[in-house]
Design a protein around this nucleic acid. Structure first.
Lengths: 134, 134
DNA sequence: TTAATTCTGGTACTCAAATACCGAAATAGG
DNA sequence: CCTATTTCGGTATTTGAGTACCAGAATTAA
């Protein structure tokens, strides 16, 4: 079974987790709470939020009453931002044979991959945390 | 680095390899030749063509002068056919959290994933081996 | 200052996909 | 037949993502 679109569970967890943080905004929300809500492993989720925090998308606070809060307005955080942090940089034009001297002068996929990638890119950009705060 | 679209090297090799077979049609083409053309490992490519053969998309012949030939007209073999054989079945609507009781009543991705998937599906369907002959 | 709580960051483990290997079976030609 | 060639199919290895673990640092409250 294969997904056509490449979204790791980590990226999805990040989006869902941040949606919860956005809903509680400006309260702090800790990793344990989010993990429980999402039926996810706390260790795993903590790791993901660590990266989000390091990137500056959220702020973190240690100690009792600690947790995470958004570091930007909800309208300014898109799934694209999250995706790029969690999955590292995005490749837009990506025939897997591009590297190893492909014998076809014109890429066999034509513009198809680039076009789709761009459409995915736009779609991800249009999904914002503000969509979930109602 | 992350690809937005999920195309394994195997699926890409299959398409490129079959394009070569299509160009030589109705000659037989052997794995070694294809692998060399594509700068790919022969062992790997052979494995992929084995699956294509088992699925009936191509016919195989052993022994000296052996090789592979298409088993259908070039217009009737699409990248979607190839993709489905190599990657196994496709998932169209696919939030990775779908399985584990997601707390959001309405999928947080809305229709976005389904729409994109469907567009990828159509694109793959429109890429045909006949695009690479002549 | 003490204890409890929470994030941090490094590391280790797990698992499946991707890839590679190799002996066996089939075929063509001499 | 015999040999070289080529696919077949089972299996082994590699790789990377996903996941788990744990000791350490920061913070709060008592």
């Amino acid at each position: 079974m294969s997904h056509l679109i490449n979204i790791s569970e980590a990226a999805s967890l990040a989006l869902h987790g941040l949606a919860i943080v956005a809903q509680k905004n400006p309260e702090k929300v800790n990793a344990k709470y989010i993990a429980e809500k999402l039926n996810a492993s706390e260790a795993h989720l903590a790791k993901i939020f660590q990266r989000l925090s390091k990137s500056g998308l959220i702020k973190s606070f240690r100690g009792p009453t600690g947790g995470f809060v958004l570091n930007k307005p909800v309208e300014e955080i898109s799934f694209l931002d999250i995706y790029e942090i969690v999955e590292s940089k995005i490749i837009i034009n990506d025939c897997p044979l591009h590297k190893t001297g492909c014998p076809f002068e014109n890429c066999i996929f034509g513009d198809a991959l680039k076009n789709i990638s761009q459409s995915i890119y736009q779609t991800f950009k249009n999904i914002k945390l503000s969509d979930f705060t109602e």
